[in-house]
Design a protein around this nucleic acid. Structure first.
Length: 181
DNA sequence: GCCTGGATTGTCT
DNA sequence: GACAATCCAGGCA
């Protein structure tokens, strides 16, 4: 398995997101295959970055390949990968993965859950992989990082299911979402 | 299985 | 002081 390089992420999130399907999320011994992602672009009203940089979303304006973790709803963490160029404020949200390896570790972090429910949501994914605010800003492309996105040669699905959200203004797309059929 | 309502706290106005 | 890129338990079918 090879670690994805920064050049992979240094593109618009709408280009990166569909190609991240079937890639691997690796955190220590735990590995999961990415099956659902969502793209957040600059000037996207649904994005944390829409109102400009704040302390919370600072990572989103950093360089591509950084891990952006935020806390929401008082109890959940969500994981994103920063894309594009420095200052863009764009990212790809990891929404769901299926367990591939280190399943015992995943089960230990989410006791009482069925295997298929270990990481099939943004909050669950972070809990299962032990990701929290300490990982905000981690460089996925740094060789020393134990958290990264891997490629084991499985290509993205030829025909992913695409979901679109239409925004406040008619005809404006607010977010893009891709999932493995 | 699908739908509904409640939980709970960091962050920004 | 309000809200948020959500999760889960519980009720009903």
């Amino acid at each position: 398995m090879r670690r994805l390089r920064r050049s992979f992420f240094a593109r618009p999130s709408t280009a990166v997101a569909p190609e991240m399907l079937n890639k691997l999320l690796v955190s220590g011994e735990s590995i999961g295959r990415i099956v659902e992602v969502e793209a957040y672009m600059p000037n996207d009203p649904a994005s944390h970055a829409f109102r400009g940089p704040t302390r919370r979303n600072a990572t989103m304006f950093g360089k591509a390949g950084l891990l952006y973790i935020y806390f929401t709803y008082g109890m959940h963490h969500c994981a994103n990968v920063v894309t594009g160029s420095i200052g863009d404020g764009q990212a790809v949200l990891l929404r769901a993965v299926t367990p591939v390896a280190g399943i015992d570790e995943l089960r230990a972090r989410r006791p009482g859950r069925a295997d298929r429910s270990l990481a099939d949501g943004p909050g669950k994914l972070c809990q299962a992989f032990g990701l929290d605010l300490r990982h905000d800003g981690v460089d996925l492309c740094a060789a020393a990082s134990s958290v990264f996105i891997g490629d084991d040669g499985v290509p993205p699905p030829a025909a992913p299911r695409v979901g679109r959200r239409v925004g406040i203004k008619v005809g404006v797309e607010l977010a893009w979402r891709w999932r493995v059929p």
